[in-house]
Simulated assay, not measured.
Amino acid sequence: MLTDWPDRGYWQLDWNAQTYRWSQTARREARDIVQHPDLVAQWLQCEGTWFVGVDVLPSAPDGCVAGVPLCGPAAERIGARDDLHPAQVSITYPGYPRPRADESDAAFRYRRNRDAAHMDGVLAEGSPKRRFLRDRHDWILGLPLTETSPGASPLVVWEGSHHILQSAMINALGDIPDADWGSTDITEVYQDARKEVFATCRRTPLFTRPGEAVLLSPFLLHGVAPWQAAATASRDGRMVAYLRPESPAPGPIWIRQK
């Protein structure tokens, strides 16, 4: 678990040759993945404009891909790990966003107008949708795999929003056993916190290139911007690999981290 996050809630890490080597190896693996019919059927969403790709990259528990280690400033900051999940490969294409299957009109408007802004680990379930904290992550590491122009659906963050969302989680869950967190409805608390974020925090697109990286606080509100009409990319689209390991820290320590 990382501590001493900057006040904005994320680090944007400079280009590094070792990180670039990893990104290009991961890109080759990702190209094979998006040719697999079963994976395409499962993960290609939003009318063909978003490949969700959860845990599809065959990365090792230490972050290695096809024999290439995860090295560079990001790896140095997170430290050695042997418990990493296979990375997500999130790919957006021109036209993103389109409605996702069974997505309500309100949910699609939120995707289009608010970048589908969310805190990872908070899941919407049931009908009507209610929200629960299902996962506790140490951090979120984004590693771009393809070259694009800045308008090709960049990652978007709300600077300083981790303070607001962490406070909301503490207020909602801090006084109950962490074994009960997953079954505790936090819908209103979470929605009120998002509204405060939108009203008070700066929305910042993070344009990144292969060899660079972004490292986000697990409480940071973030999303993906719509693909701009003038944006350019290769046929691979905007490919980003994401790692977000489960935190081994006890719940009371995780929720009050500094």
Results as ranks from 00 to 15, higher is better:
92 T>V: 11
145 L>A: 11
130 R>C: 07
108 F>S: 03
118 H>D: 00
110 Y>V: 00
162 H>E: 00
108 F>M: 06
113 N>L: 07
136 R>I: 14
129 K>R: 15
121 G>R: 01
163 H>F: 05
109 R>P: 09
142 G>R: 02
168 A>W: 03
145 L>Q: 04
170 I>Y: 08
179 A>D: 15
128 P>E: 12
85 H>R: 14
166 Q>I: 05
109 R>G: 11
157 V>A: 00
120 D>T: 08
96 Y>P: 01
162 H>K: 00
112 R>G: 09
153 S>Y: 02
158 W>T: 06
172 A>V: 07
100 R>N: 14
170 I>P: 12
166 Q>R: 15
169 M>C: 13
84 L>G: 00
146 T>A: 01
95 G>R: 09
153 S>M: 09
88 Q>I: 12
158 W>K: 07
137 H>K: 11
99 P>I: 13
174 G>D: 01
178 D>N: 15
171 N>P: 15
125 E>R: 14
125 E>V: 12
154 P>E: 10
108 F>A: 05
122 V>P: 12
101 A>W: 14
116 A>D: 07
148 T>V: 13
132 F>I: 12
111 R>N: 00
138 D>E: 14
93 Y>H: 13
170 I>H: 08
133 L>G: 07
98 R>W: 09
104 S>M: 07
167 S>T: 15
154 P>V: 07
102 D>S: 14
174 G>Y: 06
156 V>G: 11
83 D>M: 03
110 Y>E: 08
181 W>K: 04
105 D>F: 11
146 T>S: 13
128 P>C: 03
124 A>I: 02
136 R>F: 12
124 A>P: 12
179 A>Y: 14
161 S>E: 03
134 R>L: 13
117 A>N: 00
173 L>M: 13
168 A>P: 04
145 L>S: 08
166 Q>W: 02
104 S>W: 04
182 G>N: 02
177 P>Q: 08
176 I>W: 09
160 G>F: 08
154 P>K: 02
149 S>V: 06
86 P>C: 06
145 L>M: 11
86 P>E: 10
84 L>T: 04
160 G>M: 01
104 S>I: 06
87 A>W: 11
120 D>E: 10
115 D>M: 06
87 A>E: 04
182 G>E: 05
142 G>W: 01
